[in-house]
């Protein structure tokens, strides 16, 4: 049975998402670092884990009052704890989302899709990467598209998020044959092909975490 909660993301849903993201990053940290050592500098898992742990601590110590405050706190914390390109890019994703949702206490599919689109646009602007450059954008842009399609079609939130997670995973997997054009992997040239992109992998975990944590909460 569809409950009322399956149409909106509350402050607690957002916090549950980011706690789940931390769990997923911790679980996959070693793998992310391994992927990064193949085409980058072997620190993506370590850096992300430091950041998501700090986000989790901050959000669970003092629960923000509205959705914008959750997203802003997450963004600021990632910027100041992750470091590297990932910190500023993940931070920008959340800070831009926060700007878009403002003081709303709940986000429906349309508002969330719109906020996520603004967040990803911020990442594109800051990182100057496009789809196909073998970066986190390759998982995030398909997420934006899936969320918009779901929102336009009136799909329930849980299903929308599952579709988004599937799109992110497909985008992540599609980075394997790509030649990197941005970030440290780009120095490898053709040698960067046949590797999964670590940034797209952590971005897919971010979307999967939301789909999973929300599915559990409305069950």
């Amino acid at each position: 049975m569809l409950t009322l909660e399956d149409s909106r993301l509350t402050v607690d849903d957002l916090i549950a998402w980011l706690v789940r993201f931390d769990e997923q990053i911790v679980e996959h940290a070693e793998r992310l670092t391994e992927l990064d050592s193949a085409i980058g500098d072997a620190d993506h898992g370590t850096n992300m884990a430091r950041g998501t742990a700090a986000v989790r601590l901050r959000l669970t110590e003092a629960r923000p009052d509205d959705a914008g405050a959750v997203l802003k706190s997450c963004g600021m914390t990632l910027v100041s704890t992750v470091g590297g390109a990932s910190g500023s890019l993940y931070g920008t994703l959340f800070l831009e989302m926060a700007k878009r949702v403002g003081a709303a206490s709940e986000l429906d599919t349309t508002v969330f899709a719109d906020a996520f689109r603004a967040g990803v646009a911020g990442v594109v602007a800051r990182g100057r990467a496009e789809p196909g450059d073998k970066t986190m954008i390759d998982a995030l842009q398909p997420t934006v598209d899936a969320l918009s399609t779901a929102a336009a079609g009136g799909v329930p939130l849980t299903k929308s998020l599952q579709a988004a997670a599937a799109a992110a995973a497909a985008g992540r997997d599609a980075t394997i044959p790509l030649v990197a054009r941005r970030g440290r992997a780009s120095y490898l040239g053709d040698r960067s092909a046949d590797h999964l992109d670590p940034g797209a992998t952590s971005a897919a975990l971010l979307v999967q975490s939301l789909a999973d944590s929300h599915a559990e909460r409305v069950r």
Binding site: A42, D43, V79, T81, G83, G84, G87, S88
Partner: peptide
């Protein structure tokens, strides 16, 4: 000073 091989952050 950032972490090893990792850029420092804007707040630093």
């Amino acid at each position: 000073a950032g972490e090893v091989f990792t850029s420092p952050t804007p707040d630093q």
